[in-house]
Nucleic acid binder design. Structure first.
Lengths: 217, 217
DNA sequence: ACCTTAACTACCGATGCGTAAAGTAGCCCG
DNA sequence: CGGGCTACTTTACGCATCGGTAGTTAAGGT
C-alpha cells in the first residue's frame, strides 16, 4: 500500500538500503499511529522484515524516531531553503517561492509532515520539532526584516503568525482536498502560496514605513 | 500545584463534585504526559482518590479522555462565542473580541488547550478536535462572509488561514512569553488580538469588493 | 566448500489497563 | 445517640501489549 514491504521472507540487502527501508516504514507507521501507538512489530511488518532487523538498523525506538525526525526535518528545510533562492532577489518573490515549496513538500512527503507536526510536537521530542519550527520562523523573519527594513525582533510575531497561517492552510488542504480545490485552478501549491501572500502581504506592508526606520532602504 | 488534590484520605462527596475533581486531574495529567504517557494511577493520585474511583466516575481511559475533550472544547467554544457578542454588531469588532477571548482562554485554561491541540490532534480522537476546529473556523467564516458581503465558500480558505495564524501566535506566546512580552505594553490578549487584526485585516479587505460577485447581497 | 553476516523464530521482563474482594469510615435516619 | 447504608479505600491479581534480546538459520561472495 505505501512503501516497499512484501518480498520473499529472506533477502540479503546492502545495509544502507535496508536502513532506508526501515526508516521509510517507521515514518509511515509513526505518522499513522503516533509515537506511542506505533509498535516496533508494526514497523517491522510494514518494512517487510523481522523485528531484530529494525533494532539492528534503527536502534532503540527512541533513536529510530529521532532518526525519522532528523531526516524529515532536513528534507523539508532543505527544499524550502533551496526554493527561496538567492538572498539578493526580490524579498516578496522569495517568500512566495518558499511558501510554494513548503506546500509542495507537504504532498510529496506527507507522512513526514505528519510525523513532524502532529506526532513529535509533544513529549520528549518536542525540542526537536520546536527547533525546526524555529529555524523556519527565523527564515521568515529574515525575509521580512530584509524586505521591510525593520529590526528582526520587531517582525518576530509576524513571522510566527505567517508560519501558523501556512500550517492552518496546509492542514485544511490535506484534510479536505476537494474543498480546497475550489479555491482556484492550477497547481494547488501555487494557488495556496498566492493566497497566503495576498492575505498577509498588505498587512505586513503597513508595519514597515512612516517614520519608524526612515533611512533604511 | 494545580487542582484540588490533597485532603484527608476519605471524604464523601456528591457524585458531580467528585466527577469534576477527577476530570480536573485527568486534564492536568493528560496535558503533561499525553494520552499514552498518562496512567490511570497517576490520574488517581493527582485527584487524591483511589484508582477504582476514577473508573467509577470517568469510565475507561478512552471515555475519560473523551470527556476531558468535550468539556474543554465546550468551554473554549462557549467563551469565544459569548465574547463575539451580538451578531448585528460591527464584524471587525466582533472578530477582535473573539480573538481576544481566544487568547485569554489559553492562559486561564492552558491545560485544556494543551490537551485539545497537542494531545488529541492525532490518533483515535483526532475527529473530536477536528470537529471543534471546524466549528471555530465556521464562526470565523461567518464573520468574514457577513462583514465582507461574500459567499461563505469563498472565505473558507481565509478562515482556515486566520485560525492557523492565531494558533501560531498563541503557541509562540505560550512557549516564549518573555519574547512575546516585548510586542507591546498592556494586556497580552489585547495586544495579540490587535496584532492579528492588523496583519490580516488589510489583506481581507482586498478580497471583498470590486465587482467579483455583483448581484449577491 | 566455507565462512561471514544478514535475517528469523521464539522468548523474557516490565508496564499498565481494568476489576474483584474485603475492609473501613462518613453521613443519614430513627 | 446508635445502627446501617453505601461511598470509598486498600490490596491484589488477570490479561494483554510491547520493548528489547538470545540463539539459530540460511544467503551469497570467494
Amino acid at each position: 500500500m505505501t512503501s516497499g514491504a512484501s518480498r520473499t521472507g529472506r533477502q540479503r540487502l546492502a545495509p544502507d538500503v535496508r536502513r532506508r527501508q526501515v526508516l521509510d516504514a517507521a515514518v509511515a507507521v509513526f505518522s499513522e499511529e503516533g509515537f506511542h501507538g506505533a509498535s516496533m512489530d508494526a514497523i517491522a511488518v510494514r518494512a517487510g522484515v523481522s523485528k531484530p532487523l529494525v533494532y539492528a538498523h534503527g536502534g532503540s525506538k527512541d533513536e529510530l524516531f529521532a532518526a525519522c525526525l532528523h531526516r524529515e526535518a532536513d528534507r523539508l528545510l532543505r527544499s524550502v531553503q533551496s526554493a527561496a533562492g538567492e538572498p539578493d532577489a526580490e524579498p516578496l518573490a522569495r517568500l512566495r517561492r518558499a511558501l510554494r515549496a513548503f506546500f509542495l513538500a507537504l504532498t510529496t512527503r506527507r507522512q513526514g509532515w505528519t510525523v513532524l507536526w502532529r506526532q513529535a510536537s509533544t513529549g520528549p521530542f518536542a525540542g526537536e520539532v520546536d527547533a525546526l519550527r524555529r529555524r523556519i520562523v527565523e527564515e521568515a523573519a529574515d525575509l521580512m526584516a530584509g524586505g521591510l527594513g525593520v529590526p528582526r525582533a520587531r517582525v518576530l510575531p509576524y513571522a510566527h503568525t505567517l508560519v501558523g497561517a501556512a500550517e492552518g492552510l496546509a492542514d485544511w488542504w490535506l484534510t479536505d482536498p476537494e474543498a480546497a480545490a475550489t479555491t482556484g485552478p492550477g497547481d494547488p501549491a501555487d494557488v495556496l502560496a498566492d493566497l497566503l501572500v495576498a492575505v498577509v502581504g498588505p498587512g505586513l506592508a503597513t508595519i514597515a514605513p512612516s517614520g519608524a526606520v526612515s533611512g533604511e532602504r
